[in-house]
């Protein structure tokens, strides 16, 4: 079970590491807090920021840029279909396919304590290498769990989840596996696209497991509408009204 000790943000992690940190930047007069680029390991992730608003719309191309990311879990890093499926099937922590974490939640994987971090990505993709590097966590042979809540203003049928990842990844929407891509690969926009699905009105849980072997690691995700255009009339949040998907209706 996860306990909810409020772990420090990425910024504070960087500060604790004794590295130069500049925590807040103002972009064109907004109050968005953006983590600044730093020069050495342990510095804050340059492409990630702390969410400062309750909800965030996708960018103009429909990319989902607000996520809860769990600190990386060490795995074998094998990327074949069967190896990735086995890695994800392994229960690393209770409720890994159902729990809806909140920013700062911590849990144990074996003897290792890991924390969930709420992030907004500056770019269309979420740079997991930046994320892990900033936390002094491993970037190779690792498994990342990521979750976001997509709020739909009405029921949206015929939409598809379109993802790209470095490297392999498996994705769920409201608890149903919808797409998996395997083997060593780079993040390509719309690399894997789910079959048609329906987003229900209100919150929908999007979850992914991303497995990296070595080198860079990141992902991108967006929904496409029934005409294969980026879906933009939705918002993302990372603060759920409850802790289980079953009640997130």
């Amino acid at each position: 079970m996860s306990d909810r000790t409020f772990l420090p943000s990425l910024v504070i992690v960087g500060a604790l590491a004794g590295i130069i940190v500049v925590a807040v930047a103002h972009a064109q007069g907004t109050a968005t807090a953006r983590l600044q680029r730093a020069e050495s390991r342990g510095a804050p992730a340059p492409s990630l920021a702390r969410p400062t608003s309750p909800a965030k719309a996708p960018n103009a191309e429909g990319f989902l840029q607000r996520w809860l990311v769990l600190e990386p879990i060490r795995v074998s890093g094998q990327l074949t279909d069967s190896a990735v499926k086995a890695t994800v099937k392994t229960e690393h922590f209770p409720g890994q396919l159902t729990a809806i974490p909140r920013d700062g939640d911590t849990l144990f994987v074996g003897d290792t304590k890991v924390a969930w971090h709420a992030i907004d990505s500056v770019g269309y993709n979420v740079n997991l290498y930046h994320f892990a590097y900033a936390l002094n966590k491993p970037t190779s042979n690792v498994l990342f769990w990521v979750v976001t809540i997509v709020n739909a203003p009405r029921e949206l049928s015929g939409v598809r989840l379109a993802i790209g990842s470095n490297a392999a990844s498996i994705w769920w929407v409201n608890g149903t596996e919808v797409i998996g891509i395997y083997n060593d690969r780079q993040t390509v926009i719309d690399d894997g696209v789910s079959k048609r699905l329906t987003l229900k009105q209100g919150p929908n849980v999007v979850r992914a497991a991303i497995v990296n072997a070595g080198g860079h690691t990141d992902f991108c995700a967006r929904f496409l509408d029934d005409q294969d255009r980026p879906l933009t009339g939705i918002t993302m949040s990372v603060i759920s009204p409850s802790k289980t998907e079953g009640s997130a209706k």
């Binding site: 797409i179 390509v188 719309d190 690399d191 894997g192 696209v193 789910s194 294969d228």
Partner: peptide, 10 residues
């Protein structure tokens, strides 16, 4: 080809 890895009918 709706994406690099995904075929469908449209």
């Amino acid at each position: 080809a709706i994406g690099s890895s995904t075929p469908t009918l449209a």
